[in-house]
Every structure is written in C-alpha cells, then in structure tokens.
Design a protein around this nucleic acid. Sequence first.
RNA 1: GGGCGAUUAGCUCAGUUGGUUAGAGCGCUACGUUGACAUCGUAGAGGUCGUAGGUUCGAGUCCUAUAUCGCCCACCA
Length: 897
Amino acid sequence: MELPTRYTPAEHEGAIYDRWEKSGAFQPKAKEHGERTFTIMIPPPNVTGVLHMGHAMVGTVEDIVIRYRRMLGDAALWVPGTDHAGIATQAVVERKLLDEQKKTRKDLGRPAFEAEIWKWKEQHGSYILQQLRRLGSSCDWTRTRFTLEPAMSRAVREAFVRLFDKGLVYRGARLVNWDCVLQTAVSDDEIEYVPRKDKLYSIRYPVKGRPGEFVTVATTRPETMLGDTGVCVHPDDERYRAYHGSVLLLPLVDREIPLVLDDGVEREFGTGAVKVTPGHDPADYERGAKHNLPIINLYEKDGRLNENAGPYKGLSREKARDEIVKKLDELGLLAKVEPYEHNVAVSDRSKSIIEPLVSEQWFVKMKPLAGPAIRAMQTGALKFRPERWTKVYLDWLENVRDWCISRQLWWGHQIPVWYDEDGVPFASRDDVPIGSPHPKTGKPIVRQDEDVLDTWASSWLWPFATLGWPDLTDDLARFYPTQFLSTAREIIYLWVARMVMAGYEFLDHLPEDQRCPFEVCYVNATVLDGKGRRMSKSLGNGIDPIEMIDKYGADAVRYSLILLTKEGQDVKLSPDRFEQGWRFGNKVWNAARFVLMKLECARGDGTSSSAARLEDRWILSRLAAVREEVSSALEQHRYNDAATALYRFVWNDFCDWYLEIVKPRLVAADDPTAVAARGTLARVLSDALAMLHPFTPYMTEVLWQALNEKLGRTAPMLISGPWPDGAGLARDAAAESEMQTIQDLVRAVRSVRLLTGIAERKPLAAHVAAPRAAERGVLERHAATVKALAFLESCEVREAIARPPNSAVAVAGALEAFVPLSEDVDLEKLRESLSRRAEKVRTGIAGSDAKLANAAFVERADPEIVAEERARRAEMATELALLEKNVAGLGGINGKG
RNA sequence: GGGCGAUUAGCUCAGUUGGUUAGAGCGCUACGUUGACAUCGUAGAGGUCGUAGGUUCGAGUCCUAUAUCGCCCACCA
C-alpha cells in the first residue's frame, strides 16, 4: 500500500475509531492475577452541553493518560457519562416547550413535563458524547452512565438515607439564595457576584416622639425597607447617642422598629446607621437573629411583592423601587441619592439577580464531612496538580458552610422523604405508598417531598456509583479508588471536594486509606481567547473544537492543545494555533511515508540489531534519551514536556539529520549498509509512533498498521501497546559527541555558503583544520557523510592548514574549514558574521574569567562546576583565537591575501 | 479586605532542584524545489528576563518590596 502525500484525517478517523471500539480495546482487559488497574471517571458534562475547548482540554489530557496506561499493560478503564444538570436541562426543555407549544411546565403537569425532558434527553443527550468520540476519547462506552438513571437513583437514595439517619441532613427555614426566574433555591456555590453601577439611597426614618428628627440610613435596595425590623448603629457613635433606646417609625407603613446597638456596624460607611432587613439580606439575617428582630418576607416566589408590602403588593422589585423612591421623595424623606458601584449576586444559571429569602429547605451538615477530606490531603491520599490548588481546596473545606441541597424543580432526583399527616419526615430507600404508616409515629404517610436534589448531590457519588455502589460489585472492588481526575478549576468546590467527602463518608466498607476517590486531581488550564479573555457564549469568542477537528483533524487539535499548555497554566488560544499541531502531523506522516517506501526495498530484514554506523548509534541514543524523557514527563503530568520532547526528536533529530544522512544509501538499494539503516529505521519509527500514540492516536494507528504490513509483522493495533520498553537502547555518549562534531562542521559550511552567496548545492572543496586527533578521526571516518550534508565534492582534513588564497572560512569550535573560491566574492558579510561570533565568545570568556578570578568561586563552588568552567573557558579561548585570526585574515580587500 | 497566577524576542510561550554565550513555534530577512514533506529545507536578524532592593562565589530561577494584568474567596448597608 502506497501512502498518499497528504494525511487526510476525515478519511481515517471514523474508521479507525470504529475498529478500536469494535475490537474491545476501550474496555479494560480481562481480569488477571496481580493486575494493575488504572481508572478515570469522566467529569460528566451536562447532558445539554456542547463540547467547548475546556472539555477538549480535559478530554485530551484524560485520553493521553488512559492510552499511556493501557499501552503499559494496565487494566485501563475510562468511564464516560453525562450529568442530568437539573436547572440547565429543565430550562432548555421549558424554553423549547414555550417556543413550540406555547405551554409552561405547569400547563403540562409534572409527569408529562418529566416525560418531555426524558424525550429530549433520548434525542439530544448523547450529542456531547458523540463529540468526545471525534476527539478520539477512548472511553468504555459500554459503561456509559447518566446521573439520573435508575441505578444512580439507588445510590442517591442510599446516600441520602444514610445522612438522614445520622442526622447529617436536616430540614429548616433559612435564608437561601432565591432565583426568582427559575423559582428555586440555589447553593452559595451557584451564584456569582458581578459589579454593577447602581445608586445609594439615603432615607430618613423619623424618630418616634421627636418630631422633625430622623435617623438616616443608606441602602442600595430601598424597596426592602418594607421588610425592615430594626436599625443598627454602633454603640460608641456619638451622633446617635441621643437616640439610644429610641423607636423609629418606618416610613410608608409607619411600623415601629427599634434602634439597636451593634458594634459590627461600620461608623464610616454612609451615615453609620444600617437598616436591618432580616428576611432579605444575609448580613441582616444574622444581625436580626442576634437582636431577636422579627423576619418579614416581602416576596412571592417569582420576585413580586406580597401582601406584607401593603400598597405595593404585586409589583416587581424594580417597579416597587421606583414607586417607593418617588413616594419617599414626596414625603421629604429621601435625603440623598448618589451613584454607587457594588457587587450584585447573580444566579449562575438564569443570570437573574438573586433575592435572598427565607424558605424551608434541606441542608447537609458539611463540617463532619469535611474532616476526612482535609485529612486526605494531609495523609497524601490526594494530590493536586498543580499543587497550589491544595490550598484553595483546604481553605474551602475549613470554612465550609452547610449545603442547601433541595431545589424547587421537577428534573432531578426527588427527595426520598415522606411525611405523615403531622409533617413528620421519614427518609426511605424504597418508595413509600401513600397511606402506609410512618415507621416512627405510626400515622399515615400523606405525601412525598416535592423538591428534587441539587445535581451535585448525585454527581458527588459519581466515582463509585458508576461502579455499582451501593452494591459491593466486583467492578467496585476492582476499579475503586480511581487514579486520576482531570478537571476544570471552577468545580473544585462544587464537585471535587464533595466527591472526596462522599468517598470517605459512604465507602465505609473500605479501610480509610482506600476511600479517597482519586489519587491525583489534575486541574487543567483555562482556555482563553487570543486577547486573554475567558471564552464564553455571551462574548461569542469561543473556538469550536469540532470545527477545528474538521479543519485540522483530531490529532492536530489534541497535539496543539497539549503542546501549548504547561501544567495548569492558562492558555491564550486563537484558531491559527492549531496549525502547529497540523504541521507536525504532516511532518510525521511524510517521514513515515518515506521510511515505508524505503523499507519496501528491504529483503525481509527489518529487525537487524547491528547498528554499527555512527548515525545509527546516534539516533538510537537519542531515541533512548527521548524515551526516558517522555516516560518521566508523563508520570509527572508534564504533558507538554513530553509532547515537546517528541516534537524535537522527530523533527530535528530524526528528520533533519538521521534521514538526511541515510537517504543516499537507502536510495542505492544494493548498498549492504542499508540493511542496518533499515533495522534502525524500523525501530525508531516503531517506537516514535508508539510514544506519539497517546497524543495523536489516529495518525499513529494508521501508520502503525502500514509499518507492520510492510515488515510482514502481525501486530495488534497500536492502541493496545506495548509502550516502548527501551530494550536494547542506551545512551551512547561517544556517538552523540562525534555526531556533534559533524553537525558543527556541516552547519558552519552551510553558513559560509549563505554568507558568501555560493549556491547551496554548488559542489565545493573544503580544507578542514582539525588540531585534535579525535575530531580529525571523526571527520575522516565520516567524510562521506559530511560531504553529502554540506554538498562538498572533497573534504580534506589535516591537523593544521594555512588559509588558502582567496578562500572563505568557517569556524566551529576548534575546527576551521576553508573553502577556496573560484570567483570573486564579497566576504564582508562573512567577516561580520565571524566578528559577531567573536564578540559573543568574548562576552562568554569575560564572564568566565570573572568567575575564575574570583577566589570565592574557586573555593566554594562545587569542584565539578569549577572544572567545567575551566574547560569551557579553554574551549572558548581556542575558538576565539581562530575567529580573531580569520577576521584579521579576511580584513583585506575582499579578503584576498 | 484576603489568597493565587502571570510579567522572558514583534506575537504566543518554554526555561525541572540557583551554575555554559537565555530557548522554541509563529512572524520577519536572505537563499533554495527532478523524488518524504514548500503544510518543506538552509542560514540569519531579534531579548539590560516588569521595576527596586537583598541573599549568594554565582540569580530569569531564591527572599522582600513595588507596578501592571488576570483569576478565586469574602463582601459594608
């Protein structure tokens, strides 16, 4: 089979992926004694989701890791799946319903609406997983999970009931973050603060019994005054000393509210007097509780004012604000309005302004769960990459607050709590029929709690629920705990920390040191746009990974992402950045194509291990080096270092030098030395493809098949490995050093050509002065190589040579190469170049002298370092002498002399 | 208010425990195409490593301060 000049991803990717999947390669291999398992659980994307660069990044890292472990021979398992994403999904389907049928979910009713969502999920729910396949993700699709499937429900109920029975979950009326659009509570972690230009209103509250006297308060939300039940001032604030113990008259409603002393009040801010609205402000809620102030709830679930707002009942928050400000102004109670910038709490999902309000919700006590998750860090059971996230994780856990887990939604796990006629709750693993007796009170059960659980209350069970928990399945025993989690920093609190808590809390059949759900949490880079901004839908600056895959191929997208991304460091990405990966792929493809063409001439011997020739020894030494580098980088999660090492090896060492050296011999099919070269070629290409496979799986698989076919080898697919074991490979310092001499001379001669304008391929005669016997030997033995690479028709090497008349010269270390010129050539550029080089070397010598002249350095530095410094200094001096001699020699008119 | 990250070539970024004359890709300049690849090759120009101190024989690398940009947490009405 002849490979085409261009690799066309679209022609291969689908077919290769099918073959991998059908072969069962994505599934962990059969269980064997003493096996090592390696498990990754995907961070389940929202079932409504569309693949973005963040997913691509996380997915690429995961796939590199799982492919590497699979090739190493581990029983590797990567479990895929999606998250039902309560609010997000419900919102999508509600919108669709409204658009298509002009109906709300309430029009449909709960069962019909839920059916509608399931229908939507069946149709669209695997979209993002299909996209992950395009990326090459080698997940075990036979185990695809969904956080709302029945098996997950069992796990969720089990977890809830256990917490309920231990008293770690409770129901109570608390001030929660209320999303007025979605009409549900959301947790503290689901809101964000956005800066907003607003107004600060100062309002006069009349003092009872002192006509004409006021206490003035400042607020950004005047409409909440209707819920005020007190005003706080600092006890030492002289301005208000006269009013201590006074009662104020709340304007508009004339409610009597006390002036309360609280040393938590900032005297400098505003007027130093704070209105207290315990029902609608978290800080006021606490102040109110401290001073026993009543709570007044002003709002309906949709954010309109309720009957407690008196004449303003039914108005929206905004409308009420306008009306109230207007009225206060009329009454002369509006003291001041000034522009003010502050942070406003906004719901992550609906982007609507959060209204804090008091309602009955379910909460999880977090403190007891946090302890083991903190210990996991201390015992080393859990590690973050980069390590700095450890602190972020611990800070959150140490200050963790109770978690509001009930949501007033229909899409989710309905809370497994039933109430008797007195409202006494009862948590159950199984459905409880209405009318059956409450196990504690004996009274009939009348209803199930209507709320559903926060999505994270199912996804925190993901690492073990996906393996069958609460049943103690074989899978659970075999694959838990997992080894690696690749994720985004936004969900360290929401998901990562909670999974760790859940692992310790619920897997109590395991010894404590085996409960942590993953060993390493790799926090990925955040992908920014070319201008350094976050990619977001609203900015429209996102780059669609699928579009990039269509254009450049999955391998190029993966490779580019990894090459650009140092461990966890944000990356600015513009579409053209994918070209680097694409170019590299093209290079690999063509190098392999060339090798395969030449292997065709091999007479069955592709495995010769005798690599006596220098270039063979050299490239195998480089291969040994890169193999060690890549393996160690992968083990240490330095993926970009691994990718870079491979890039340099393939492009610079293999293509630029090795292939160029062996090319002439390969072309001459009857050259007996070509056999050894072919053995080397096969070995290097094999190992390089294997090491590249985790990064660029598709192309390497195609080439691997072609290589094996050419060699008559029956090998399994590359996806199954093996990872190169380095057998027979070792660093060869002598070969690397000899090769260095050749490269130095060749580069020097090429440079001379360009600086003197001699055509690159015009044959030249070179006279090389090589005072050192070792270098002389190398150049003599490898004269053919040097001549071919530098396009020399002859290359005479001697210990010393006087510069021939009218010749150009190159200096490389202790080597001098003279090239006699047949025509009149301007040597000025060459002289400048030598001068520049001399200047650089002089700088080096000066630095070196400064060091060596420093007695402290010679005495205190490592003797090895000092010896190296002396050697380096001597080398530089040798080179400088040659440079200076030749600069002077070229000094005449056109260098003739 | 607290914490974290970034600051190195025109651009985007590497630089692993302090130790050569600070690197890569892109871009730029010059030259080059009859056979792996012009999506290529060869050579080259280009940087007082944000600033100021300090530690050290020696600092892009460690410490302190500071500036600018970004992110996270908390949040004062």
